[in-house]
Each structure stands twice: as C-alpha cells, then as structure tokens.
Design a protein around this nucleic acid. Structure first.
Length: 684
RNA sequence: GGUCCGGUAGCUCAGUUGGUUAGAGCAGGGGACUCAUAAUCCCUUGGUCGGGGGUUCGAGUCCCUCCCGGACUACCA
C-alpha cells in the first residue's frame, strides 16, 4: 500500500476560555484518527493552534489590565497542558497571533484582492465613545424594538426572539462602559462570495468532501439564494492584524483563524525542513478538517472559497461532529455537568473518556451523550473486565518462561482476529469509531472463553503440563496484544503497557497480523484502575462549585438557606434602574382566562380570551403552548399587561400579554395572584 | 411551518444490494469457576422491528401516509 500524506486539523480553541469535555470530543476524535493513520504507516500530521484575535480578547485583556499578548500566552499554555494530559498529541501547536499567520493572511488577502472579490461598503455600527471602540453585537444591550423587553442582547431578543441589528435597539447601552453608544458609520471590506457560487455548489455537492446531511443543509440554507457578501474587516481598535492595504482596518477573526491551520503547518515545516507547498499546494496531500457543527458555514463556504482563490489545496474532507450532552442535557454549570478538562483530570483517568467517546462516535453529525452511569459501566466492563483481564489472568503463569516459540493451535482465534484488521481499519478511516470499538470488543468476548476452557490455573499444578500451560498463555497474551494494537489509536497507554509486558513495542497496525513468539514476559503490572462512582461524583461536585463561584462572583452572598442557583440571574442579568414613572406606564391587571384554545398551525402559541371583569375582554396570543394545556388554564387568574399596543400576528390581533417567567419552551411559569384578587384589579 | 436525521429487547446499539425461526453488549434471572481489578464462563427471561396502508413469492430493509423524538431554521406581543 502506498504511503498517504495527510494533513489534519482540529478547530482552533478560542483563547478566551479553558478546554472542557465538550471541546474534547473534537480533539479526541481527531487525535484518534491521526494516531490511527500514523499507526498504518501514513505520513500524517496533526496541526492546531490557539485562536487569539477578536474583540472578546481585547476587552478581557483590558478588564484584567494587561496586554492581550500576556493573556493569550497564559491561555495557550493552559490549553497545551490540558491537551497533553489527555494524550492529545499535535505535531505543531501554534497561534493565530504569529508572524507566519500574518504573512499568510497578507498573501491570501492579496490573491482575493487580485481576483476582484473585495468591495467596500459603509456599515452603521454602534460605537462606545467612552471605551473608544466599536461594539460587537454581544457588547450592546438595550430595549427590544419589537416587544419593549429591556436589557436584551444586541442581535436578538431573548423575550420575543426577534432578530434585529444593534442599530435598531431602543435605548442601547454598552456593556463595557455603560455609556450610550453612538451610531457611527465605518468603512468595512467585504468579500463577494457570490462570485464563487458555482464553484461552491460543485465543491459542496459532489459527495466527497462533506457528510451528506451537511451537503444537504448547505444546499437548502445557503446555496439556493445568492450568497451574501462576507464582512471581513473590523475598524480599529481591534486585537488582530491590520489589513496592509487598508490602514485602520483589521481582518475579522474568522478570516485569520482558518489561515492559522496553514501558519501552524508552516512553523512545523520550518522546524522539520519540510516544504510547505508539499502540504498545502500538492495534489498528493490530503487535507482533513475536523470541526463542530456550529462552525460549518465558515469551513464549508468561506474557507474553500479562500483556498480556491489563493490557489491552495482544497480540503479533502471536512469532518463535522455534533455537540456533547451530559445525561441527555446540555452541559450545565449549576448541575456540575460543565466539566473543564482540568477538573476531569483531577479525578479521573483520561483513558476512560478517550474510550467512551470512541465507543459513542460515528461519522454522523448527531450529538453524543455522556451518560455518567453508562460511562462507568462501559469502561469497567469493556476495558477492565474484558480486555485488561485477558492479560492479568494469564501473564504471571509465563513470567518465567516467556512466550512459546511456535504458535499453538488456538482453534483459529488469532487468524480470525487478524482477518478483521481491514474491517476495523475501515471503521476508523470512516470515523465510525463506535463500530470499530464494537468489533474489537467482540474479539475480547471470544478470547475470554478460550482461557476459561483451557484452565491455565489447573495446568500449572501439573509439571508435565508445563508446555501446555505456556501455549495457552501464549494464545491469551497474543489475543490481548492484538486487541491492544487495534485499540492503540484510542488507548496508547494500554498499547505501551502491552509492549512493555511482552517486550515488543507496538508501532504498526500490521503487527496484529503475526503472533509474537519467544519473547520474555515481564511481571504483570496493573494497567487500568476501575472507574469509581465516587470519583465521578467528586468531579461533578467540583464542577458545580466552580459554576456557583463563577455566577456568584461580584455578589455578596447573604445567608440563603434555600440555596437557589444563580443560573437564571446570570442568563438574564438585571435591567438598568427605572423610575416609578417608568413603572406605572405599564398597566398590569389581574385577569381571568375565560377561554384557551390550541391553534393547530402554531407551534408555540395558545389563543387566550382574558376577562378583566364587567364584560371587558381581550384576545391574547401567548407563547405557552409547550408548557400548558389549554383546558387547564380556563378559569384561572393571571397577570396581564393590559395597555400594551395591540399587535397583528399571524393568527389574529393580540391585544395584550400575559406575564410569565422562565427561559421559554416548556419552561414557562405564569404568574398568579394570591387568593382574594379579582379580575380588573391593577397591580401596583 | 420548512429542511434534515432518527424511532429495532429495560438501556446503548448492529442489522450489508429486501431472502430461512430478528441479533450483540450491558442490565435482570439461574448456575459454574476461582487464574484475574467481586474480574470470568455457561444457561436463561425479554421485541406485533413507532402505527396504518401498499409493492413483492417474501419487507426491520423499498413506496405512501400518519404519530413521536432530535438537530438546524422561520415565526413566536
């Protein structure tokens, strides 16, 4: 087989936060793939870097009163430690804030200019006069222009869900300084992606570069219409690279981040004496990107467009994975399931997570779930009970004599496992690790009965059976070694231990084809501890404490025996102060729901008739369908906004709103007055 | 509402181009063994393959339709 040259990247972690177990899905998925390729003898290189630019980094550095460089250096060191401790091994780990990246950005930019893809447009954006900076959407909060909810983010309303531009916000405030931002016009540079539409259509739809569901998604959501211009610049001040031919403007972080893949490769090439063009401008070299589904659009439209225009290799494949849930839910700081890599390492062996993720990952974009109970059971039964057990139950019987010099008759077990090498390899190659793990565990399931049937513990009692004993253990240890080879992309430590035990290092996939014979066998050393439930709990507890500390930071906690989580407050911080006059503008009334009905076509809305008493009624559409059965609402009292300007909705006129708390969906909680209140009473 | 992906044993899933009585691991029940990290081995309970139609000699597998779950995406006062 010819040796493939393969360049692999994982998405660059942002320098604004620590690595957590959600990130690790990707870095482990990629690391396993790279280790597999290397084990097969391919010339495969794993490149990554910290993503360091953007407003968020600039702001944080300011808040911490230090330079951006200091901040990103510290974060990068932390990232690299976390990765290394999870046995994630990069051939080069760089930074987007590097000379190599700056040079490559300039070169690619020039190509894009030369191709006539760049145009200038004025953009109105909010500017913070006190902080002296333009504000990205998330640094502005204000009143929703549609529903008048206060303290809403700059790009969409968390109350009514409307999306809008920051310039449309009513009474906007900068979250940096609290100042009222001014609308300022600034020149921005855009890439006219539409000029590459036909190319992108072909590239995304040809069936080779993307998973089918992703190709479909792009076709449905983007490629059906003209592609929008991509706003690629940000005016100063901005932490990043200034655009050489446009002083005062900086490349938007999403321009220079993927180029960071190349810059990291460049560093490696310079160090190794390799030719950069062999990796990025060669038809003989495959380029594989591993990313999460959240950044699909940058990697499947902009990035191929940039590479194409600049004359570099296009990605051979973009492998896209889903998100991690823990016990079926989004990771949650208050539940302690938002676990940082370091917190995990404080309590558990990284190999557990490597194996568990491998057992769960497929080539689909589906989210994967880390069920903590399943995690414990799976790791213990598969790795300890089935795999390691094979070695630990047979090694000591041959510690003195070593392995037999001829491979004994094992009923075809070894050959059978050897013949599965291609099928297992294929599963790894396709990123279908769950299938690979299933096949490998099947081998362990066949190996243990062999030991059982041949009873080495009885053979050792009879000196005349010494040869037979050695043979049986030779078989068991060779079956164990085969499994360790197949698992070595996932569990390199186990492969190392197997190599040490049998005095023959595992370095190549094909070692699984030939039994190991005649080598000495070392004293068996414990290979993998069982997962203890209490350690998992301690990890969750530590994460929970960290989450609580973060949300309580800045607030003086008074004694609170209910110990309510700070999550709700964090999700939706307090609005700015208002006056009594402001408050009384809103006429809140007690109302009785006199009818409530489903609207078949509406997913979130119920149609309500509210009575304020005396025959006065109002029709209200409320987004509570997922939380309440209409028949259970009829008759109850609620609080409504009675003087809200009526609004025409898809299903009719809504004349007010009922007030409720909660994040939305099925988590909506209507307010009720205490007993005694009657419809029509005003809330003061 | 649109697009896409799923719905197979209590749980996690496998079921190749439609082809014998639908499988595995785990969990549950019973037994055995003691070399091994209370690991292992044997036996065993358990499924109208989401529902209903259709195509076919034959459907978990193909077609239609409905129901349910998830993801993305409108709208959601």
């Amino acid at each position: 087989m010819t040796k493939r040259r393969i360049l692999v990247t994982a998405a660059l972690p942002y320098a604004n936060g620590h690595i957590h177990i959600g990130h690790l899905v990707e870095y482990l998925q990629t690391d396993i793939w790279v280790r597999f390729q290397k084990l097969r003898g391919n010339d495969c290189r794993y490149m990554c870097a910290d993503d360091t630019h953007g407003t968020a980094i600039m702001i944080r550095a300011r808040q911490e009163n230090r330079s951006e460089e200091e901040l990103i250096a510290e974060m990068q060191a932390a990232h690299e430690r976390d990765f290394a401790d999870f046995d994630i091994e990069f051939d080069n780990y760089g930074s987007t804030h590097s000379d190599e990246n700056r040079a490559l950005c300039a070169e690619i930019w020039q190509s894009i200019r030369d191709a006539g893809l760049v145009k200038e447009k004025d953009v109105e954006q909010l500017f913070d006069p006190e902080a002296g900076t333009f504000l990205a959407d998330r640094f502005v909060r204000g009143t929703c222009p549609k529903c008048a909810a206060t303290d809403q983010p700059g790009d969409n309303c968390s109350s009514c869900g409307t999306t809008y531009s920051t310039a449309e916000l009513v009474d906007p405030k900068s979250t940096l300084s609290g100042a009222t931002p001014e609308v300022r016009s600034a020149k921005h540079l855009f890439i006219e992606l539409e000029q590459l539409h036909e190319f992108l259509n072909d590239w995304t739809q040809c069936g080779k570069h993307l998973q089918p569901e992703i190709a479909n998604y792009l076709k449905g959501h983007f490629l059906g219409d003209p592609l929008r211009d991509w706003d690629i610049s940000r005016p100063a001040p901005y932490f990043g690279f200034e655009i050489p031919d446009s002083p005062g403007n900086y490349w938007y972080v999403w321009f220079d981040a993927p180029i960071g893949y190349m810059a990291s490769t460049k560093q490696w090439c310079d160090r190794q004496g390799e030719d950069f063009n062999d990796w990025w401008k060669s038809a003989d070299c495959e380029v594989h990107h591993f990313i999460g589904k959240d950044i699909t659009y940058f990697h499947t439209l902009f990035w191929p467009g940039m590479l194409k225009t600049a004359g570099y290799s296009l990605p051979t494949k973009v492998h896209i994975h889903g998100f991690l849930t823990v016990d079926g839910e989004k990771m949650s700081k208050s539940k302690g399931t938002f676990v940082n890599a370091r917190t995990y390492l404080n309590h558990l062996d990284p190999n557990y997570l490597r194996y568990f993720y491998a057992a769960k990952l497929s080539s689909k974009v589906d989210d994967i779930d880390l069920s903590l109970d399943e995690f414990i059971v799976k790791v213990n039964t598969d790795l300890v009970g089935k795999v390691v057990n094979l070695a630990s139950r047979s090694a000591k019987f041959v510690a003195k004599v070593g392995l037999s010099t001829e491979y004994p008759d094992d009923g075809g077990l070894f050959d059978e496992a050897a013949s599965m090498a291609d099928e297992i390899a294929q599963a790894y190659e396709e990123c279908n690790y769950s299938k690979a793990m299933r096949l490998i565990m099947g081998l362990a399931d066949r190996a243990n009965p062999y030991v059982e049937e041949n009873k080495p513990w009885e053979l050792r009692k009879d000196d005349e059976q010494a040869q037979r004993l050695q043979d049986v253990c030779t078989v068991a240890l060779n079956l164990f070694r085969q499994i360790a080879i197949y698992l070595s992309p996932v569990l390199l430590k186990l492969a190392q231990q197997a190599g040490e035990l049998l005095n023959d290092p595992i370095t190549h996939w094909d070692q699984a084809k030939t039994p190991l014979l005649g080598t000495p066998v070392n004293k068996f050393k414990h290979m993998l501890k069982r997962v203890e439930e209490k350690d998992v709990q301690k990890m969750i507890e530590e994460s929970k404490e960290a989450g609580e500390a973060a949300s309580a930071a800045g607030d003086v906690a008074i004694e609170d025996r209910w110990n309510d989580s700070g999550e709700a407050l964090t999700a939706e911080p307090l609005a700015e102060e208002c006056t009594y006059d402001d408050f009384i503008k809103v006429d809140l009334r007690v109302a009785r729901i006199v009818s409530a009905e489903h609207i078949a076509e509406a997913r979130k809305l119920l149609k309500l008739q509210l009575s304020l008493g005396g025959g006065k009624t109002m029709q209200v559409f409320a987004g509570i369908k997922a939380a309440y059965e209409p028949e259970k609402l009829v008759g109850r009292l609620v609080i409504c906004v009675a003087n809200l300007a009526p609004r025409k909705m898809k299903f009719g006129l809504s004349e007010g709103m009922v007030v409720a708390s909660g994040p939305g969906g099925s988590e909506v909680f209507l307010l009720s007055p205490d007993d005694g209140a009657v419809p029509g009473q005003r809330v003061h």
